[in-house]
């Protein structure tokens, strides 16, 4: 199906928003994970985290590149990454939260990887050939991310008393940011109608199956409350953290506009 036909179900602007959500998630999380480089608990983990960040960065180039194409304003993936302000970002709040300790980073990774894996499995069937192809490539990378984050969360949850307590604290802290990943709005409804992607709510059982099993093995207890912070994927209200992250990330592009690097 070509771009023109899709417009019947999904406006160009909606499709751009949809792609930004995908690309901003990987951009922001990739950036956060890259902050660990050189500072991990052990060399092997340092190298593994860098691989995850590199995968996410690569996916970002594809998603944002596609978003820029659909937008049709002659922009590049870099323009979108480095020249938008906080309110234009469409990532979920979970990924912009600071790294915290290694346990918090890995818990965030597990929660996002589980969502990401079930989402990509659906996007492989997208009627948009580009989305389907990107999802195909990314799903292999994310399958490994999930395997690794799950094993690490299980290992640390079941490890020592200290590691267990830290992982439980990380889970308690991050759980209120899980719900947002499964919220639906008009953009999602249009994506479903156009066969572009799944209804986020439909991904929840797959996510729960993965996460519940992992947490059980990790001897961690899922918090009772299903309260969910929101505002990231709509851009309505990000956390304060994203602005600081963009200050760093976008600094050179902002300070020296138009320069080639």
């Amino acid at each position: 199906m070509g771009a023109a036909e899709k417009l019947a179900e999904m406006t160009q602007e909606q499709l751009v928003q949809y792609l930004l959500r995908l690309g901003d998630n990987t951009l922001v999380l990739g950036h956060r994970v890259s902050e660990w480089c050189g500072k991990s608990p052990v060399l092997e983990e340092d190298i593994a985290l860098a691989n995850t960040a590199l995968d996410l960065l690569g996916q970002t180039q594809l998603w944002l590149g596609r978003a820029a194409d659909v937008q049709g304003e002659g922009k590049s993936a870099d323009d979108l990454a480095f020249l938008r302000d906080v309110w234009d970002f469409r990532n979920v709040l979970l990924v912009e939260l600071p790294n915290g300790d290694f346990g918090q980073t890995l818990m965030r990774q597990l929660l996002f990887d589980a969502y990401h894996a079930v989402l990509l499995a659906e996007l492989v069937n997208s009627t948009d050939a580009t989305i389907s192809a990107i999802a195909e490539k990314a799903s292999k990378e994310v399958a490994y991310h999930l395997e690794r984050s799950r094993d690490t969360v299980i290992g640390l949850g079941d490890g020592t008393e200290e590691s267990h307590n830290r992982m439980q604290a990380a889970l308690d802290l991050l759980w209120p940011y899980v719900g947002e990943m499964f919220h639906s709005d008009a953009v999602d409804a249009a994506a479903v109608a156009a066969g572009i992607g799944p209804d986020p709510a439909s991904l929840r059982p797959g996510f729960d199956a993965i996460v519940t099993a992992a947490l059980a093995e990790a001897t961690l207890v899922k918090p009772d409350s299903d309260f969910a912070h929101k505002g990231g994927r709509t851009g309505a209200m990000h956390t304060e953290h994203l602005g600081h992250m963009l200050c760093q990330m976008q600094w050179l592009q902002r300070a020296y506009p138009g320069n080639k690097w």
Binding site: S40, P41, V42, E45, F102, G103, T152, G155, L156, G159, T160, E162, S163, H164, R166
Partner: peptide
């Protein structure tokens, strides 16, 4: 990182 190495 000590608690991570010990935990795993």
């Amino acid at each position: 990182g000590a608690w991570v190495r010990e935990g795993l």
